[in-house]
Amino acid sequence: MASANRTPSSPSVFLLQGIPGLEAYHKWFAVPVCTIYVVIIAGNCTILLAIATEAALQRPMCYFLCMLAAIDLAASTSALPKVLCIFWFQDGEIQASACLAQMFFIHALCMMESAVLLAMALDRYVAICFPLRYGSIFTGSLVARMGVAAAARGTLLMGPCPFLIRRLSFCRTNVIHHTYCEHMAVVKLACGDTSVNRAYGLSVALLVIGGDLLFIGFSYCLIVRAVLQLSSHEARRKAFGTCGSHICVILISYSPALFSFFTHRFGHHVAPHIHIILANIYLLFPPMLNPIVYGVRTKEIRERVIRVFLPGRVTTKAGPG
């Protein structure tokens, strides 16, 4: 480790430290992280399987849910295997190119997820405010184009970051005080002028988080106005019920992201391990909870999962009817 603090201007290897100050507890952290990763894989694969094999689920909102599940699987797999290597085996060494690739995929996939959540909000807006035109507006081709746009936006916005980091000089240390190659954690190691990197990172974060939340909020303002104009209490309850799962997922996804963003930028007196734990919560909890929320709240998904994993129970229920 002594040599880790004397690096050339462009190090070929970085060392991920994990959670600074809590190294003695790394093996204990590995247990819940591994458990959550298994739940992420099982839950999101189950959602994908249920939607792929159930004709009643072949509709736009479920296609967006498939995108969300695929993004969650990819983002988790980009970071968590290496996190577990750090916690279990103290193996924090990562090639510089692999570090930049990990950084790109984690941040780009998070931007794609935000775009999908925005598309889901637009889906709910059209379904509630223009129900008779929903089928003609939200076609399969439109959903596909929105998915491509989400992927393109994440790729284009995150694409310059690895190249901006390549131009920096790292003359102090190559030890990254984090569990994965987070953009600002790497930028902070540089000994030259990092104002361009910081400004670009802040601008992209504000554009993605701020812009998407603004449009999501505007969509729900229109939804609430339209629902409150319904004369039937049952109709209002049903309309709000169709948005419940999406609202839960928005809160699950954006809350840790906002906490992590603001503590990283403005919480200078917050302990470093708090920053890192918040950043890990952002990667762990939304991918784990999203399939649970939709699996519990969406009747067709819940019934399809029961038919796949508990066929005898479904048969028993169906028989007397």
Rank of each mutant, 00 (worst) to 15 (best):
A190E: 07
K188T: 11
V208E: 15
Y200V: 12
A205C: 09
L213I: 00
F240Y: 10
V196K: 08
A190M: 08
A226N: 01
L189P: 14
I223Q: 04
L202G: 03
H246K: 02
V187F: 00
G217L: 01
C191F: 00
R198Y: 13
F240W: 08
I216W: 04
S232M: 06
L206D: 04
V224Q: 07
L228D: 13
V224A: 13
R237F: 03
T242S: 11
G201E: 04
L214H: 05
C243M: 13
E234N: 14
V196T: 11
R236I: 03
G244N: 12
K188P: 05
F218Q: 15
L222W: 03
A226D: 04
C191W: 08
L228W: 04
T194C: 15
L214C: 14
G210T: 05
T242L: 08
S203D: 05
H233V: 13
F240C: 01
H233M: 10
G241L: 03
L222S: 12
C191I: 09
L214S: 09
V208Q: 15
Y220L: 08
S245F: 09
C191G: 02
Q229E: 13
G217F: 00
I216C: 02
Y220E: 01
A239Y: 01
G210Q: 08
R236Q: 15
R236D: 06
I209T: 12
G217P: 13
Y200Q: 03
I209G: 10
C243A: 14
V204H: 09
F215E: 10
F218R: 13
S195K: 14
I209L: 12
F240M: 07
H233I: 06
E234F: 05
G241P: 00
V204L: 05
V227H: 08
R225M: 10
S219H: 02
A190P: 08
H233T: 15
I223S: 04
K188E: 11
F215P: 15
Q229P: 00
S231T: 15
T194R: 12
R237E: 07
T194H: 02
I209F: 11
G217V: 08
F240V: 00
F218L: 15
A235H: 05
S203F: 10
Y200K: 01
V187A: 00
R236W: 02
T242V: 10
Y200C: 01
A190S: 14
K238I: 05
V204G: 13
Y200E: 00
G211M: 02
V204D: 13
L189C: 09
Q229A: 14
G211R: 03
C191A: 14
H246N: 15
V224C: 11
A239P: 02
L207P: 12
K238Q: 10
A205L: 06
C221Q: 07
C191L: 09
A199V: 01
L214T: 14
V208I: 14
G241Y: 00
A235C: 04
R198A: 14
F215R: 04
S245I: 00
N197P: 04
I216F: 03
R225L: 06
C191R: 12
G241D: 05
S231M: 13
V208S: 11
R198S: 06
A199T: 01
S232D: 10
T242F: 00
C243H: 02
V204Y: 09
K188Q: 11
L230Y: 01
G244D: 14
G201W: 07
V227K: 02
L230S: 04
V224M: 13
L213N: 11
D212F: 04
G192Q: 10
I209P: 08
N197I: 01
